[in-house]
Nucleic acid binder design. Structure first.
Lengths: 128, 128
DNA sequence: CGGAATCCTCTTCGATACTG
DNA sequence: CAGTATCGAAGAGGATTCCG
């Protein structure tokens, strides 16, 4: 839980945006995975989430806190230090995330292939 | 596969909108469930999907067709008859949908309870 | 460091009306 | 019956800037 997060733990060219399954909001599942190994600080989570803005990460974490998925601990120090940790409820999502990953490994290529085939047929709406 | 769909197969007051898991777009999972028993016509699917407009159902079905989740068969008759059917790929989502249902049965009450508790604490942003 | 405030765009969903 | 066309509201997500 002390080792740093791999900045490339989420493949930038991964076709996950095509995945027909979503956990929470756009970043929720990735946040859960970032916290899988234990408590993390705000910017620690932000690292692998390439392109997320602090505002959106705050939104995501607040929503997760509201739903009892994470706990937020603000240490009264200077510089500030805030840590987020998965609750058991949040941890229960890991099973589901793994299920979606299993589905993707098994079926996402077929979906992508169907989509590409469909998009390359000129008798339907072309890619745009 | 010939028996009509139960118009109330989706509970109107079910808290599924709070579910942190989503398959495809808003209606995709429900369409899959409508087609679980076999081929269905456009307005047959539309029935249980209370409130969906034809435009949105068409969008949903087209997207699903593009991704190889359903097949569309237009019979050249009068009046028109169009039938939609799950592909094996679309059918593979049923497993995942059942997994999300299992998670919801087990954990959604806790999530809802955490949310209600959070919303009733005056030291945070109140319900809006 | 960990946000908050503001502004903006893009997509999604819905209401309504019309058509082959 | 099975859509299409058009309009509009809403919200998610992002860019930028500023603060304790």
């Amino acid at each position: 839980m002390a080792e740093p997060l791999d900045p490339e733990m989420f493949d930038p060219v991964c076709p996950s945006s095509a995945m027909p399954i979503q956990i929470g909001d756009k970043w929720t599942a990735m946040v859960v995975l970032c916290l899988e190994g234990g408590r993390r600080r705000f910017n620690e989570i932000k690292g692998p989430l390439r392109g997320i803005t602090p505002k959106v990460l705050t939104q995501t974490l607040r929503a997760m806190e509201r739903d009892g998925l994470v706990t937020r601990t603000a240490h009264d120090e200077n510089p500030p230090r805030v840590e987020y940790e998965l609750t058991p409820l949040g941890r229960s999502l890991l099973t589901l995330i793994e299920a979606t990953r299993a589905w993707s490994r098994e079926h996402l290529p077929a979906l992508l292939q169907a989509r590409a085939a469909h998009d390359s047929t000129p008798d339907r709406s072309p890619p745009g």
